[in-house]
Design a protein around this nucleic acid. Structure first.
Lengths: 158, 158
DNA sequence: GCAGTATACTTTATACCTCAATGATTGATG
DNA sequence: CATCAATCATTGAGGTATAAAGTATACTGC
């Protein structure tokens, strides 16, 4: 094909492998994200970040602090503020006061939020199952284990 | 395929496996993306989308059309317009006329763009290699193969 | 030639997201 | 118990994303 660039010449072929792996990982992730985003928009007029945020809240029945949401979602605090604003305006969540810390809020699902989330989560799961249906359960478990290891390695690099 | 009710779907632990896998995939992807974004900003005052776009152009020495950029980056055309605007304003790329189609542009790197990209790509590669250094080359190849298969399966789902 | 339709790109409105700066509260230390 | 650094959340500016609508050009078939 075409000649290799100067950058390519300097590359160790093993390094190239890591780069390809990263691009592949990103590609898969983006594809699924796009798919889910479109489905959420179409069926529930919901965005993916809002759905993710609600999912985090749902796992914390006693409420969850803004900062904890930020850490779990790997996004900045300012971002969380904005999304919580929107969801609160829509009546799906509330900022409850934290009795132990007057700086903080405990964000909780409202009844409407819980109901909607239950519906969405169910649909969401079927979409994901369908997307991964080309892989056997065995393969899925293996991939999951690999990624769990990768995630642990990555966490060490901060 | 759908002989199971929605209640059954929630009960099936295999389905949760797919969900966990997806969240793990997304987590790894986001972590690396954040890491690279910060490094690009710090060392080159560059953003990740702009770097990605330059990388796509660099692979197409004769220039590349806006629509092709959009397809390869899995983003919308409007988005490409904005990023190309910024990079062009910075003197790193140019919109050259396509002699074969007056609606289209052939986007190319300028000399400055090519030089900067070469530097950035080299650094970028070392970051990625470092991030994946916890995995053996063997493991990386296996993961890459798995994701390649996944990507192919996904592409079939449109 | 000349509709009608498809393609290439831009624009607009809205939402996400980061970083850095700010205000408010807490908690640890001298 | 007074200070002061650390923590919790918000704001504002700049950049990235989408969908939908708009403009201009190309193509297709009659």
């Amino acid at each position: 094909m075409n000649a290799v660039s100067r950058a390519d010449i300097q590359m160790n072929p093993d390094h190239h492998e890591s780069l390809r792996l990263w691009l592949r990982l990103l590609g898969c992730s983006n594809f699924i994200k796009n798919h889910v985003r479109r489905a959420l928009a179409k069926q529930f007029k919901m965005t993916l970040p809002r759905f993710d945020l609600m999912a985090q809240i749902e796992r914390a029945p006693h409420g969850i602090k803004m900062g904890e949401l930020s850490r779990r979602m790997l996004v900045t605090g300012g971002n969380v503020t904005g999304i919580v604003d929107q969801l609160e305006r829509a009546g799906l969540i509330v900022r409850a006061e934290d009795p132990a810390d007057r700086r903080a809020y405990l964000v909780k699902l409202t009844k409407a939020g819980r109901q909607l989330f239950t519906q969405m989560a169910s649909e969401h799961e079927t979409w994901i199952v369908e997307l991964f249906s080309g892989m056997s359960m065995r393969e899925q478990r293996a991939l999951n284990a690999t990624l769990l290891g990768l995630r642990a390695q990555l966490a060490r690099k901060t």
